[in-house]
Amino acid sequence: MAVSDETPRTPALDVRDLSFSYGGAPALQEVDLRIAVGEFVVLLGLNGAGKTTLFSLVTRLYDTRHGHIAVEGHDLHRQATHAHACMGVVFQQPTLDLDLTVKQNLLYHGALHGMTRRMAYERAMEQLGRMGMQDSLQRRVRQLSGGQRRRVEIARGLLHHPRLLLLDEPTVGLDMASRRALVSHVHELCASQGVAVLWATHLIDEVYADDRVVVLDQGRVKADGHVADIVAAQGSETIGAAFDRLVGKETTP
């Protein structure tokens, strides 16, 4: 029998048996999640489902006590520096300095990652160019629209060429047109740059028909699969109806 030369690639994100509690109240319970390089995954859950807690553990804002997390094969405890170098993050709350220019925000981030000023500038122009925002380089962040600010945050998250991009409710506060444009843009980034994406949201309309979806409810993974598979498994017609069934939101006639 011929032996395949192909070996499984290391997941961009590997979460196993992850649990976490706040003062004895469980927030995550035995969560397993693996994301391949270049894969777009929607983490779908109601507010309070545990999405932000998961992000806080992966980014080490909280310390993991029960379970395992690795980024590009780097254990988050034993190889934290290498793991963090492989990830970019866009948090739910905006974190850009409003009084600095786009350029100043991006160059500062580059310096934190050990880049020379020239390298950070070149990468800033590269990422802004992908978004059609080169002309905003010298503008102060407070002069930008909400959607433009989010795009700058994504550019910042990608500045050091991470293999994993985490976005926690990134469309909060944006209008419908800006939300749709941002979702589309990140899908395109995933396809063109091969970066793995974990997109956390509670909004069904941000899910594309061919997305892989992980449904998180009360700290537990209730479903993990592509939209069509989850819809079929729940005997529903849409991902919205399947989600409602999974989280117990169905209304009785």
Score class of each variant (00 low, 15 high):
A120D: 00
D63M: 03
A155S: 12
D17W: 01
V207H: 07
V231L: 00
G24I: 12
V15Y: 00
G38Q: 08
G24F: 09
Q218T: 10
H82Y: 01
L166V: 04
A155E: 07
G23A: 12
L96Q: 00
D205F: 13
V231F: 00
G157F: 15
T10W: 02
T52E: 12
R180I: 09
D224T: 01
F20M: 15
A2P: 12
L57T: 01
A196S: 09
L137R: 10
D135M: 05
L13G: 06
V152D: 06
L100S: 02
R130S: 08
A2M: 08
G194K: 02
G88M: 09
Q234E: 10
R151K: 11
R140M: 10
P8K: 15
D229T: 08
L216T: 14
R180F: 04
H74K: 10
F91M: 13
T201F: 05
M119S: 07
T95I: 06
D17Q: 12
N47Q: 05
G38S: 13
F20R: 04
I239G: 10
H66N: 11
F40R: 10
A200V: 07
V90T: 07
V15Q: 03
E126Y: 15
A83T: 02
L137V: 09
R140I: 04
E30S: 11
E122K: 14
A155L: 12
H84I: 07
M115Q: 13
P170H: 05
D168Q: 09
V227E: 03
R65M: 15
L165C: 14
L98A: 14
S145M: 02
V102L: 03
F40N: 08
D14I: 13
S236N: 01
G73R: 00
T101L: 02
L43Y: 14
G132Q: 08
R140D: 04
R140Q: 05
P170A: 11
T81H: 08
R212E: 05
L46Q: 14
Q29C: 15
Q127R: 15
W199A: 11
G248I: 06
V90M: 07
V215P: 03
L167C: 10
T53K: 14
E237M: 01
H109I: 13
L43E: 03
V31E: 08
G45L: 01
A242C: 00
R140K: 11
H202R: 02
A25K: 15
T251G: 03
R142T: 02
L61M: 09
E237G: 04
L46E: 07
R130E: 14
N105Y: 07
A177E: 15
